[in-house]
């Protein structure tokens, strides 16, 4: 029955805190990859080339429709079959970064589409270059409506990092399972993992909402 042991809790807490660092690092790296690669995916779908648009669109659909945990296994195990050995960290970052890049490209696409046509026309009438139009006119306006989605996926990528434990990345879940199999006690480690996730994801989600309002004010959009 219910027998929470506080001495055991204090004993394993340091290990879990260190593992939390790894989890945050994985989420941060993965997100950085996703943010940049997602923009590449989104912009690739706006080029005049129909073939490129089609290929990227289908790839994004494929990545979004299949399980991340399976993609992690795929990236980690398929390399060695062809002589390319990836470390768990590298494989994990590729898989999770690619997965969330597909999601973020949809967020960016929605944001870019939400900028009124008149803004493009005004930029043309002022003879702004395409690059300048994107970076100075369109993206600043596409950003605020994208922020909520970007924030959701930042929290999402953080919550999906436990899947990296399946290929041996020593993040929070992996450490908790290791503690469990060493001590045969699962109550404390798994409950603590849940509490640590809550303690990070809830304030982050709230912080993102505040940040979103701040950006809107800063850009004079509200």
């Amino acid at each position: 029955m219910f027998d929470w042991r506080w001495d055991f809790t204090w004993q394993i807490l340091p290990r879990l805190v260190i593992a939390t660092g790894n989890t945050l690092m994985a989420a941060g790296f993965g997100y950085a990859i996703a943010v940049v690669l997602g923009l590449v995916f989104a912009l690739a779908q706006r080029t005049p080339s129909r073939t490129l648009t089609f290929v990227v669109r289908e790839a994004v659909e494929f990545i979004r429709s299949t399980p991340l945990v399976l993609q992690i296994f795929f990236v980690f195990y398929v390399g060695p079959q062809f002589g390319l050995r990836l470390s768990p960290w590298t494989a994990g970052m590729i898989a999770i970064g690619l997965h969330y890049a597909a999601y973020l490209s949809e967020v960016y696409r929605g944001g870019l589409d939400s900028v009124p046509k008149g803004q493009w026309e005004a930029a043309t009438s002022l003879n702004l270059s395409t690059t300048r139009t994107y970076f100075r006119v369109i993206i600043p306006q596409a950003l605020p409506p994208s922020l909520a989605g970007m924030g959701n996926y930042l929290v999402g990528i953080f919550k999906d990092t436990p899947m990296l434990s399946v290929i041996g990345v020593a993040e929070l879940m992996h450490t908790a399972t290791a503690i469990g199999s060493e001590t045969y006690r699962y109550l404390e480690p798994y409950t603590l993992v849940g509490l640590i996730f809550l303690a990070i994801s809830l304030p982050t989600a709230a912080g993102i909402r505040v940040f979103e309002r701040w950006v809107r004010r800063k850009l004079g959009l509200s």
Partner: peptide
């Protein structure tokens, strides 16, 4: 929504 599905499953 604040924790991972994997954590919930193991729990």
């Amino acid at each position: 929504r604040g924790t991972s599905l994997l954590v919930q499953l193991y729990w």
